[in-house]
C-alpha cells in the first residue's frame, strides 16, 4: 500500500495494464480488440484507486492484497443499498 499522505492524495492510475498489453499492443483476439474483459479462471486485472479507509484517504492497488482472498464489489453509488 502506498504511503499515507497527510495532505492531498496523489491521483490514482486506474487500471494497470501490463506493459505487453499497452495501447500499442495488437488487438486482443478474445475481445475483438475491445476493452479488456475479465473471465473466471483468469487473473483479475490490477488497478490503483483512491480510497477512504480507516478514517482517512489513501491510494491502494488490488495487487496489495496478493495472498489473500478478495471480494471486489462494485455498486452504483453511495447512499444506495449495497
Amino acid at each position: 500500500m502506498s504511503q499515507k499522505h497527510k495532505g492531498c492524495v496523489a491521483t490514482a492510475q486506474g487500471p494497470i495494464v501490463p506493459k505487453d498489453q499497452g495501447t500499442q499492443a495488437k488487438p486482443d483476439q478474445t475481445t475483438g480488440g475491445g476493452a479488456m474483459q475479465v473471465m473466471v479462471g483468469h487473473p483479475a486485472p490490477d488497478f490503483e484507486a483512491t480510497a477512504f479507509m480507516n478514517g482517512g484517504f489513501n491510494n491502494l492497488k488490488l495487487s496489495d492484497f496478493g495472498g489473500k482472498w478478495v471480494a471486489l464489489c462494485f455498486y452504483p453509488g453511495d447512499f444506495t443499498f449495497v
Partner: peptide, 15 residues
C-alpha cells in the same frame, strides 16, 4: 455508474 458486480479473487489473484 458501475453496476453491482462482485468478483471473488483467490490468493493467486485469479478470479
Amino acid at each position: 455508474v458501475d453496476v453491482r458486480g462482485r468478483f471473488l479473487i483467490d490468493p493467486d489473484g485469479v478470479i
